[in-house]
Amino acid sequence: MRLLIHDRSEEFSQTMKGKFDQVIYADGKYAPCQGCFHCWTKSPAACEMKDALQEICRVIGQADDLTIITENWYGGYSPAVKNLLDRSIGTSTPMSTYRGREMHHTLRYGKHHQWRVVVYGDTTDGEKKTWALTAKKNAINDGFQQSEVSFVTDLNELEANAL
């Protein structure tokens, strides 16, 4: 399954539908993660907060290829996208293991193919290096075998870069 997560607009979602199996617009209209771990222990793979992100980990868990379009915020994801990712830790289980020579949680949905990030907005060289590291770590954390980051300065190029 090819999944696109972006922080652009509803209109952008409409443009991208049909080009991906599922398109999610991170509109930021939801609560941030409270760090309760209930999506691991009390109600596995479901957040206790009953909003649009309650089952987001199950959606990401189905993705073979994940593409994220996000504005650059200090070399990291925009708050809306980061909020979505913070709420998706149910893609893993509470039990731990080694992956990439580091401690990580075991994967609920097994291995995936590619974690791609398309970054737009003013991005410094230092931030670009941070992006490469973050995407690599995200991919290891969530069991994706590859990671890739690209940077877009012209918003009209977003669609072409995402495909």
Binding site: S13, A52, E55, I56
Partner: peptide, 26 residues
């Protein structure tokens, strides 16, 4: 996490199951 789960009312309630979405997100 095992102790935390017990305190929260039970253990291994689908800890490892590959649950599928029951509703559409967006």
């Amino acid at each position: 996490f095992i102790i935390l789960s017990v305190i929260q009312g039970g253990i291994f309630r689908g800890w490892f199951s590959r649950k599928k979405p029951t509703r559409m997100t967006n």
